[in-house]
Amino acid sequence: MPHPRFSGFGLGLRKPHYADFLETAVPVDFVEVISENFMIPGGRPRRILNQVRARYPVALHGVSLSVGSAHGLDADYLGRLRRLVDEIEPLFVSDHLSWSRAPRFNAHDLLPLPYTTEALDIVCANLAHAQERLGRPMLLENPSSYLAFAQSDMTEWEFLEQVCARTGCGLLLDLNNIHVSAINHGFDPLAYLAGLPLDRVRQIHLAGHSRGETFLIDTHDQPVPPSVWTLFAEVIARLGPVAVMIERDDNIPPLAELLDELDQARALARHGVAA
């Protein structure tokens, strides 16, 4: 399946900024929305999404596919996502390398996987099924995590490389997640980047985190920190055309603050490409 390429700078669309996006010309090249927020029958949220879509390309970013579930994917979920995809014709459809669903249970969180051959087979089978059902390739986002499983027999980046090779999916590279997991688990983020098939990266998330008692926590409620900007400057020059965005999910600031962060990304990208 072909991977579309898109070069630009965008923001996650959040409720406090709906009016800005509908009533003004916000200087972004695309917006990203949380798929599940719009997998509803109708009403104001769907109308707003369609109005935004008429003005900006939209990427759909999911949190509930549960691609790592040992019990397969939810048919109702996939059906609703397909209908949304058909309606919105998104730039990208993405979700996370994680699991949330077990029989008669859904954790509503991005839970970690052991990086084993069995998990690899399951993720690849589920992702291939999802891509077939959606009729298009997906982007898989690297997760942040707070525990590592002793039974893992490959690194996360080796696992992702294998998933890309076997399913043809692309990557949504979340640089904050790499930093958070690198600190939490003690690996080198540059080794992580070096191990990824960077030619598969189609989108980048830039976000912030919080410091918990034991771990960095992937809260998306802070500005992008210097450590993440450093990773961005490191990787952007090595990528082809890519969609870069600021991902803020909580403690949402005025739109102008996010646009300032996006300008910082633009400046770093120009510098990186020039270098």
Binding site: H108, D109, S145, L147, A150, N184, G212, I217
Partner: peptide, 20 residues
């Protein structure tokens, strides 16, 4: 789960209940 996983388990437990 292993002793090394215990601190992480608490984070996921907290996330789960906080989301609901």
């Amino acid at each position: 789960f292993t002793p090394a996983a215990q601190a992480g388990l608490l984070v996921y437990q907290n996330n789960y209940r906080a989301a609901l």
